[in-house]
């Protein structure tokens, strides 16, 4: 039943090198240490630490999605769709918090 002829064309060509994976990992670890450092030793800057922590988390998430999850080398539609999904979710957040902030 399974048709074999489409195998060659069906996988994407790009193979990420071990070096690139390792470089990505180094970057992620540095970001992690940075966010822990800011949080533990910058405790008096409360709101700023929360904002930076979330900002750094988002950078890390982007790095994971872009390099480990291969989005950088995937067709554009994957990047478009994930952007739409995350925007949709952000609107959910905004509309719900709007209710709580204006009560």
């Amino acid at each position: 039943m399974k048709n074999q002829h489409s195998i060659e064309e069906s996988h994407s060509e790009h193979i990420t090198s071990y070096r690139e994976h390792f470089g990505t990992w180094v970057g992620l670890i540095l970001l992690t240490l940075m966010t822990v450092f800011i949080s533990v030793f910058g405790a008096d800057l409360r709101t700023i630490t929360v904002a930076t922590a979330l900002f750094i988390a988002s950078v890390k998430a982007l790095v994971v999605a872009y390099y480990f999850m291969h989005l950088k080398y995937d067709p554009r539609i994957y990047r478009v769709l994930i952007t739409i999904v995350m925007s949709l979710f952000t609107v959910f957040l905004i509309m719900v918090i709007l209710d709580y902030l204006t009560r």
Partner: peptide
């Protein structure tokens, strides 16, 4: 996706949110 609040007009949700 963005109209769900119309089920909650009388629930105690904020007036501003209800208008939107």
């Amino acid at each position: 996706y963005f109209v769900w609040g119309h089920h909650m007009f009388t629930s105690g949700m904020s007036g501003s949110a209800a208008i939107i």
